[in-house]
């Protein structure tokens, strides 16, 4: 089974890389971009297991390694 974890910066955490991307979009002529926040996506392949168990396992992975919860949020999706 497959799962996707999306890690994003929390609100209020400065994202200089997102700002640079926003500036670059503007210089390419894309109008009306009001903000860009950069994040990460992890596609994880798991041996088959119960959906609830999979979510619990991935949540533990996020808490222990995939996200730094001081600055980042995460969302889990089973694909």
């Amino acid at each position: 089974m497959k799962a996707r974890v999306t890690v994003t910066l929390k609100n209020g955490v400065l994202d200089p890389q997102g700002k640079a991307i926003e500036g670059s979009l503007g210089s390419l002529g894309f109008d009306g971009v009001e903000g860009v926040r950069q994040g990460k996506v992890f596609d994880i392949e798991l041996t088959d297991r119960d959906a609830e168990a999979a979510k619990a396992d991935i949540e533990a992975m996020c808490e222990k390694l995939l996200a730094n919860t001081v600055i980042e949020n995460y969302a889990i999706e089973l694909l």
């Binding site: 955490v13 400065l14 200089p16 890389q17 730094n68 001081v70 600055i71």
Partner: peptide, 16 residues
């Protein structure tokens, strides 16, 4: 900071 022995986090330099 990553190990939780110190508070906060160290992020990309503002200048990049």
């Amino acid at each position: 900071t990553e190990a939780g022995l110190l508070p906060g986090a160290l992020m990309r330099n503002a200048s990049l």
